[in-house]
């Protein structure tokens, strides 16, 4: 990287060619001193406009992305008892809605949490060996196998939803066990969409793996298993964490797949929120939504402390939200 300090870099306020007058490049050579100054001024104005335009876009994007979240958090603190309306900014601040969250919402939050935990754990169990096999074996048709593992990410979740629904119907018709509308059906669907995240991140880490580390361990007398446990696993662990995190978050926030597989009593939190928004809702849902936002923030902070965000992003498995 360069040695130029950050300030000059971002503002870009240097015009070396015009000022020194030793133009050799693209810039036209200014004739007189006045022209030179004018040129430099114009050049600097353009740079300034460009600089501010960039920052305005950045600020707009952040406002755009975060305004709804702030509105939800703010509106959840608006009291008003029976005549409560959803207001942002809150008119009569209170935390009453946090005590009015119905038990049902906690149950669906619990279900979502359990599903997400199970899905990300299963995705690790299934995805890590798959990634190892994909990178290290030399099977013919490895590319095709890779496509199979990545396909749940490419298939629109709605399509997977109706596909699983119909599959469960058919299995139910022949065996008498209907998986849709229960924990098992939801779990199978969520595991299915979670697998590609772990496979993707672990493959990315393995492709950059330095084989000399393993060779060193083996030549120093470690058994293959010990080498794997003490050398390979620690190196791929950030990839596993990242994949599991993406898988957890995707499962925790999924609507399009779960909506086909839920039934009264087995409604995940996002689906409950979704149907509340489609029909009717009271402000208690703002309070539980705020709790979910806080939960995601806490997860983020923990991840930042434990793995480091840059490590997470450098893995390259930015994944794909739903």
């Amino acid at each position: 990287m360069s040695t130029i300090d950050t300030e000059t870099r971002t503002s870009g306020g240097i015009a070396p060619v015009v000022e020194t007058g030793t133009a050799t490049g693209i810039a036209p050579v200014p004739e007189t001193r006045a022209q030179r100054t004018r040129g430099a001024v114009r050049w600097q104005t353009r740079q300034a406009i460009n600089f501010w335009l960039k920052w305005i876009m950045v600020i707009l994007a952040y406002v755009f992305l975060h305004a709804p979240l702030i509105v939800v958090i703010g509106a959840s603190f608006n009291g008003g008892g029976e005549y409560a309306a959803i207001e942002f900014p809150p008119v009569s601040p209170s935390i009453e809605w946090y005590f009015e969250i119905p038990v049902g919402q906690f149950e669906s939050l619990g279900l979502s949490f359990a599903l997400a935990a199970l899905a990300s754990l299963s995705a690790v169990v299934i995805g890590v060996p798959a990634a190892l096999g994909l990178v290290r074996s030399n099977l013919p048709g490895k590319a095709l196998i890779g496509i199979v593992f990545r396909s749940p990410l490419q298939i629109p979740a709605v399509v997977s939803g109706i596909a699983f629904l119909q599959m469960f119907y058919l299995i139910g018709d022949t065996t008498g066990f209907y998986a849709q509308g229960g924990f098992i059906g939801l779990a199978i669907g969520h595991i299915f969409i979670a697998i590609p995240y772990v496979v993707g991140t672990v493959v990315a880490v393995l492709q950059r793996f330095d084989h000399r580390l393993e060779e060193a361990a083996l030549s120093l007398g470690a058994s293959p298993w010990r080498t794997f446990r003490r050398v390979t696993l620690p190196v791929i662990m950030p990839g596993v964490y990242a994949g599991a995190l993406y898988a957890f978050m995707v499962s925790f926030g999924d609507v399009p797949l779960s909506i086909f597989l839920t039934a009264p009593g087995y409604v995940t939190y996002p689906v409950e929120l979704f149907s509340a928004l489609e029909n009717d809702f009271d402000p208690s849902i703002l309070a539980s939504g705020t709790l979910v936002i806080l939960f995601c923030l806490v997860v983020m902070i923990v991840v930042q402390r434990v793995v480091g965000l840059d490590a997470l992003l450098k893995i390259g498995g930015t994944g794909k939200g739903r």
Partner: peptide, 16 residues
């Protein structure tokens, strides 16, 4: 903001 479920964000938009 990418991790938070889209339903909550849409909720915010509806309120706005």
């Amino acid at each position: 903001s990418t991790f938070i479920t889209i339903v909550i964000k849409v909720f915010g938009i509806i309120i706005i």
